[in-house]
């Protein structure tokens, strides 16, 4: 294994480790945070940090594995495409969830600092 491949290997493993850290943080947040919107925030943290960073890590790790031949480029491309799709879909999904919960007044908003939507700003 050459030195460049070793660097790729290290970066990939590091990204996967950071992703698992985000996953654990998100799980603790979902269990411990008080209101619906805060729990949704924790869910998004675990979704973005816990799935996009490991996917990027696998993509970089697969470039470094030279003995796999041209198969490693397929793995890299699949990972990058899934990163793109998750990066678009996960935030918009949690946005629509939060919006529906806010508009229908089903979830309590109690730990509240500042509410821009109630003053008629961006009332779309």
């Amino acid at each position: 294994m050459s030195e460049l491949n070793l660097v790729f290997y290290g970066i990939g493993l590091g990204l996967i480790a950071i992703g698992s850290f985000f996953e654990v943080v998100g799980a603790i947040g979902v269990l411990k945070l008080p209101s619906f919107f805060l729990r949704l925030h924790a869910l998004t943290v675990s979704c973005i940090g816990g799935s996009i960073l490991p996917l990027l890590g696998v993509a970089i790790l697969a470039i470094g594995l030279e003995e796999m031949g041209s198969q490693r480029l397929f793995i890299t491309a699949i990972c990058l495409i899934s990163v793109f799709i998750i990066l678009i879909l996960a935030p918009s999904g949690s946005h629509s969830l939060a919006r529906a919960a806010y508009n229908s007044n089903t979830a309590p908003k109690q730990p509240l600092e500042y509410d821009a939507l109630s003053r008629g700003v961006n009332k779309d």
């Binding site: 879909l89 918009s92 999904g93 946005h95 629509s96 919006r99 779309d124």
Partner: peptide, 10 residues
């Protein structure tokens, strides 16, 4: 429909 952000993502 839903908000503009969701529509654009779709």
């Amino acid at each position: 429909g839903l908000s503009t952000i969701t529509k654009t993502a779709t």
